[in-house]
Simulated assay, not measured.
Amino acid sequence: MKMKAAVMAEVGAPLHICEVELASPKANEVLVKIEATGVCHSDLNALYEETTPIPAILGHEGAGIVVEVGPNVKTVKVGDKVALSWVPFCGTCEFCQTGQVNLCESAFSPMFAGTLLDGTSRLSQNGKNIYHNSLLSTFAEYTVVPEMSCVKLPSDMPFAQASLIGCGVATGYGAAVRAAKVTPGSTVAVFGIGGVGVNAIQGARIAGASKIIACDLKEQNLEIAKSFGATHTVNVGEGDPVEALKSLTGGFGVHFAIDCTGNTNAASTAWQATRKGGTTVVIGAFNPKKELVLPAGGFHRVGKILKGSFYGDVHPFSDFPIIAQLYLDGKFQLDELVLSRIQLEEINRAFASFHDDGCVNVGRTVIEFGGK
């Protein structure tokens, strides 16, 4: 079938809106009509990443309607409303068998190769292959994805809000609820108040934390954090943030610290601000050339846990519907994360906003294709 898409033809260059071809789904694949897709900072990273296979269709936060299923598909049917997960899982590898589906071995090789799980592409233009991105490629009117990327949602879930669940929302929520395992009455510090950090705050609030401390350099972000459930704020650029966090927690430090920044200095600060026996979760991606430095003295005596978390340790098929229902019940804020709604033709404007330090970054620009 022919469809309209935004194609990355060159590293760092504006995307081209053009007509491309999409082949039918193969076994265990699903054809989805995209109704809404968020523009994530990770898409910007892919646009400027020299290793991104090109030409490619980016986009990994999407929601839509199932319009066709390939052979053997059992979990969704035509007409289902779905949110898309960019980490499908096989269910049979060592990690899937122990419940760590977010670490499934099957997804990573094709993800970096720009294909679907079988190592081939369903996208083309004038007979030449176009690469997939994160096995989803949602910057298009339609997409073919693995069945295990399609998570059915309630029929009354709006598409724009549903699209955000698949990345930043689930990652932040999972960082608090699944990775850190925040407990009722505990104290939590969240470093980096962006599209992931505010959802870590929401996850901590839903888990019953008594004190949630937002930590960031931007006063604007700290104010926004309060509207998502932060009870206190610390500007990490003013004074000693470790001492500030200890002063808010009786001198002990927080039970849980969640670092969403991708900055090794922030992660070290989060660790030092975590009390004895507490847990520090790192959700942001570090620059591999950087080093994470932690105090060595008395390391064994503090009994703390330092944990890296990929995709917030979520299980999409259980956690996506939970988040959707929390939203429908008025307990999880998603409306506030939709910063603006645009058409596909305006996508380069959304990318340009990432370079504007004055733009609000706590949320997403959402591309809509006409659905509700």
Results as ranks from 00 to 15, higher is better:
residue 280 T to A: 13
residue 228 F to S: 02
residue 160 A to P: 12
residue 215 C to Y: 04
residue 243 E to P: 07
residue 237 G to F: 03
residue 217 L to F: 13
residue 219 E to H: 13
residue 269 T to Y: 10
residue 197 G to F: 11
residue 156 D to Q: 15
residue 169 V to M: 06
residue 253 G to C: 05
residue 214 A to M: 08
residue 217 L to K: 12
residue 265 N to L: 14
residue 269 T to M: 14
residue 267 A to Q: 09
residue 219 E to I: 03
residue 196 V to W: 02
residue 205 R to I: 00
residue 176 A to V: 02
residue 264 T to V: 15
residue 252 F to V: 12
residue 279 T to C: 15
residue 204 A to V: 02
residue 233 T to H: 07
residue 181 K to H: 13
residue 226 K to A: 03
residue 197 G to W: 10
residue 212 I to K: 01
residue 195 G to N: 07
residue 209 A to C: 09
residue 213 I to T: 06
residue 151 V to D: 00
residue 175 A to E: 01
residue 240 D to R: 11
residue 244 A to Y: 03
residue 169 V to N: 08
residue 153 L to C: 11
residue 156 D to W: 10
residue 241 P to K: 10
residue 180 A to Q: 01
residue 229 G to V: 05
residue 169 V to S: 08
residue 206 I to S: 12
residue 253 G to W: 04
residue 183 T to P: 00
residue 166 G to W: 02
residue 252 F to Q: 15
residue 212 I to R: 05
residue 269 T to S: 12
residue 243 E to R: 12
residue 220 Q to P: 00
residue 281 V to Y: 01
residue 194 G to S: 03
residue 266 A to Q: 02
residue 154 P to K: 10
residue 193 I to Y: 05
residue 219 E to K: 14
residue 208 G to M: 07
residue 250 G to D: 13
residue 216 D to K: 11
residue 232 H to F: 06
residue 192 G to C: 10
residue 164 L to R: 05
residue 269 T to R: 08
residue 237 G to Q: 09
residue 190 V to I: 15
residue 217 L to H: 08
residue 273 A to F: 04
residue 212 I to W: 05
residue 186 S to K: 09
residue 180 A to R: 05
residue 260 C to F: 00
residue 184 P to E: 02
residue 270 A to S: 11
residue 210 S to C: 05
residue 201 I to Q: 09
